[in-house]
Amino acid sequence: MDLSLNDLLSILSATIRLSTPLIFAAMAGIFSERSGVVDISLEGKLLAGAFAAASVAAVTGSAWLGLGAAILTGMALSLVHGFASITHKGDQVVSGVAINIIVSGLTVVLGIAWFHRAGQTPTLPSSARFMSIKLPGADAISQVPFLGEIYTKLISGHNLLVYLAFVCVGLTYWILFKTRFGLRLRAVGENPKAVDTAGISVDFLRYRAILIGGILTGIGGTYISIAQNASFTRDMSAGQGYIALAAMIFGKWKPTPAMLSCFLFGFLEALSMRLQGVVVPFLGEVPVQLIQAGPYILTVVLLAGFVGRAIAPKADGVPYIKER
């Protein structure tokens, strides 16, 4: 197989597109788990966001209203998760699993009830979607060899939400490490008792953290249904929430490494699409499924602690109960 610069650029460009929802969800996961709340429901929130965005965009014709609806939906689900696992100290994993299952059913049920199209929402016109935008000067320098091509084909030409994902990574980093809220949030995920004795409400902090997670997954869901695609189809998040969870762990609960993990996992996905049925010299036909399973296998290997060590926030998954 010959790999031209063009091929490479198209794989990398696909990588960016495929990584975007992962990045939103992984940042959501970081906020949640850094505050000590395990969030398996990233998957469900992405899916719910995708459905809400597509539905509202279809009805109103506005991508922005779709985005708003998705964000509200993500926050609402976060509140459900918080009500169960923060207020009532319930099992965070059980709560997350419940949300995922509810969403995977409810999106289809509501989809059929509202749009009568076997769970699909109406196909959106491009006016009701986030379409790719050309960055300034893209046309002008497209003829410049190499750098011009990189700029036009790789950096320019994505939709707004892709760029927003990058902004979110920076913002996440800034909030976590440069603000008072971030300091407290990181502390509550490590030692909630220290936060409590410092006179700060553990529960309120955790609620705020998971609400931010709801916003981010809402944007991620929006991306899936009305930017990457033109309608909602059932179970369209297809495990991306779990891959994001894996990316978060793989990135050791840190924004930048988590983003890089999202790229790695997005790249594996892009590669597996590209390599479908292609015979690679010496290796023969690479099983696509092996590449697709890559994120999960890599995460297990990392968790096993044989290469590096993924250390979760200490209080992650533990409801805070004042003990005697």
Binding site: F177, K178, T179, R180, F181, G182, L183, R184, R186, A187, E190, N191, K193, A194, V195, T197, A198, G199, I200, K314
Partner: peptide
């Protein structure tokens, strides 16, 4: 009541910060 993976300084200001920005 200390956060083990925080620095001394971070532990001191936790809950007694002055303003939104850590700086």
């Amino acid at each position: 009541m200390l956060v083990e993976n925080f620095t001394v300084l971070e532990n001191i200001i936790l809950g007694a910060e002055s303003g939104m920005m850590l700086s």
